[in-house]
């Protein structure tokens, strides 16, 4: 099942001589169970792609489809609802609200959705549990380590029915092993049926994805897929590049 589809998506900023094409005819699909990484130098269009996929920006041409719904055809109210219900975001800057506890932060999008505070709280605890941080549910973001904050942000991204994750450098300033734990979590969520887009300029992080697409000047110029698993499970180490 396709969770996200970009069809010939173009985004031009400005007009006339000052027009800058940030994204140029990009086509990309993300299926349930799949983690796709987007790599490219600064200015290649990575963030534009993510903003368009999340309905935070509108394409100049082309179509963005999330969960079977073309975003361009939705009223702004229905678009906001779809964003809350279908899409989870994790940004480098985590955007946790400092005045709310971890559980309240995670529950917030569900409460905005109109479900009861009690149900939302239950879902938040379940999400925090899933990411191994249920014990810090009642603490405030400022009292949490970077890794814990990141897990709270990811729990928020996956609360309720949300199945499409959009992540922009989600391992930000975390150390190697904590960052790796975060990527492992994202990966496991995708394996259990979510879909994700991971924007990063770090090759080591992108390598956690099933597919890596390379953006350059607003276009996809190449794509790398992991090798098919072999019987003895190591396609690389048995041969490898000399």
């Amino acid at each position: 099942m396709t969770l996200l589809e970009l069809r010939q998506v173009t985004r031009v900023h400005g007009t006339g001589a000052a027009a800058v094409t940030a994204l140029d005819g990009v086509t990309l699909t993300v299926a349930a169970g799949e983690l796709v990484a987007v790599m490219g130098p600064s200015g290649s269009g990575k963030s534009t792609l993510l903003n368009l996929a999340g309905g935070l920006d509108q394409p100049t041409a082309g179509t963005v489809v999330v969960d079977g719904q073309a975003l361009g055809e939705l009223s702004s109210r229905r678009l906001a609802g779809l964003r809350r219900r279908s899409i989870g975001y994790v940004f480098q800057d985590l955007n946790l609200l400092p005045a709310l506890t971890a559980a309240e932060n995670v529950a917030l999008p569900r409460e905005l959705d109109g479900i009861s505070a009690r149900t939302a709280h239950g879902e938040a605890i379940a999400a925090l549990e899933r990411f191994g941080v249920a014990d810090i549910a009642d603490r405030f973001p400022d009292d949490l380590s970077g890794g814990q904050q990141q897990r709270v942000a990811i729990a928020r991204a996956f609360i309720g029915p949300r199945r499409l994750l959009l992540a922009d450098e989600p391992t930000g300033a975390l150390d190697t092993t904590t960052g790796e734990a975060v990527l492992r979590l994202l990966r496991e969520q995708c394996e259990s049926g979510a879909g994700g887009v991971l924007v990063t300029h770090e090759a080591r992080h992108a390598a956690w994805a099933d597919r890596v697409v390379f953006l350059r000047d607003g276009r996809i110029v190449d794509e790398s897929r992991a090798s098919e698993a072999t019987a003895n499970g190591d396609p690389m180490l048995s041969g490898g590049r000399s």
């Binding site: 790599m39 090759a203 080591r204 992108a206 390598a207 956690w208 994805a209 099933d210 890596v212 390379f214 190449d222 794509e223 790398s224 897929r225 992991a226 090798s227 698993a229 499970g233 190591d234 396609p235 690389m236 180490l237 490898g240 590049r241």
Partner: peptide, 15 residues
């Protein structure tokens, strides 16, 4: 080359 290197990285990460 970058694509090939990334594929190696993906394979190693999967392992």
């Amino acid at each position: 080359q970058r694509t090939a290197t990334l594929r190696d990285l993906q394979d190693l990460t999967r392992q």
